[in-house]
């Protein structure tokens, strides 16, 4: 990059997070995984915990997340990240442990693992990326695919009579006593991205304060497998996903509320 002179009265307001490596991601142009990775990295930077954070990557498009986060990382079997995180956290209670999981990973094959990790109140944080489709395998129906949504394995649109209904994980996890903070956010526009970052920060703070399990469901896009342009995909998601997956907190215990207030 050419050196650019920065006028003295300019202050840096956005810089590359230390918690990301410099490696370019393999994600498609416009894929919101990149945004979510960056938000996590910014939060870890702000909390100053990079050197004691251990991440767990899922199976799915973000299987290579460990290349992009500048911290210790493990790659789990499909759906098993919460079990692996449990193992790591139980023997390393001073560390910050998070899983990064997609909808197939968390809401289909790994349903048992996420529910029980949440129910035990494991002191881990889960970032759950819901884009209503299986990205890596090329656009098949996910547990979160919307009714009527066309995918390569629901070519006539998801028929809820045979394929069942999309699963609302944030609401489901919120019913579990071990969950301290559960929320659903979306990265469909700049204000949404800012709210998502705040939520991710609160989720990590919940873990740091030892209050219980925390999860941020992030509504996301997959423009490639939705067969749209990146900008169009954000619009489509706003119009179609939020109706079925309402945004906002589904569980905030009082101690987390106090935490949220206290940080202002």
């Amino acid at each position: 990059m050419a050196t650019v002179e920065i006028p003295e009265d300019m202050e840096l307001v956005y810089k590359y997070p230390e918690s990301l490596t410099e490696r370019h991601t393999h994600y498609c142009p416009g894929c919101t995984h990149g945004i979510i990775h960056r938000l996590i990295a910014e939060v870890i930077d702000e909390l100053g915990v990079r050197e004691r954070t251990i991440g767990i990557a899922p199976v799915g498009c973000s299987v290579l997340a460990y290349y992009y986060f500048n911290m210790d990382f493990a790659e789990a079997a499909h759906g098993r990240a919460p079990a692996m995180a449990t193992g790591i956290k139980r023997v390393s209670p001073g560390k910050v442990v998070f899983t990064y999981q997609g909808d197939g990973d968390l809401a289909a094959i790994g349903t048992a693992e996420i529910i029980h990790a949440a129910n035990r109140g494991e002191l881990i944080t889960t970032i759950f990326v819901n884009n209503a489709i299986y990205g890596m395998t090329g656009g098949q129906m996910a547990p979160t695919t919307l009714p009527g949504q066309v995918t390569t394995s629901s070519p006539m649109g998801r028929d809820v009579e045979t394929a069942g209904w999309p699963i609302r994980m944030a609401e489901l996890i919120a019913t579990l006593p071990g969950a301290a903070y559960v929320t659903r956010q979306a990265v469909f526009d700049v204000p949404g991205i800012r709210r998502t970052k705040k939520a991710i920060k609160l989720a990590f703070q919940t873990q740091l304060a030892g209050l219980g399990f925390s999860m941020v469901e992030v509504l996301s896009t997959c423009n490639t497998n939705w067969h749209m342009g990146p900008v169009e995909a954000l619009e489509w998601a706003k119009q179609h996903m939020v109706d079925y997956y309402p945004l906002g907190d589904t569980k905030v215990i009082d101690e987390v509320k106090a935490l949220a207030k206290g940080r202002k």
């Binding site: 202050e11 307001v13 990149g34 526009d189 991205i193």
Partner: peptide, 21 residues
């Protein structure tokens, strides 16, 4: 304006943003 909205939505961390004090 240095609002950093570009950096906020960029999935590939392309932008570094400065704002005048």
């Amino acid at each position: 304006t240095g609002c950093a909205m570009c950096a906020t939505i960029c999935p590939d961390v392309v932008f570094t943003v400065y704002r005048r004090r």
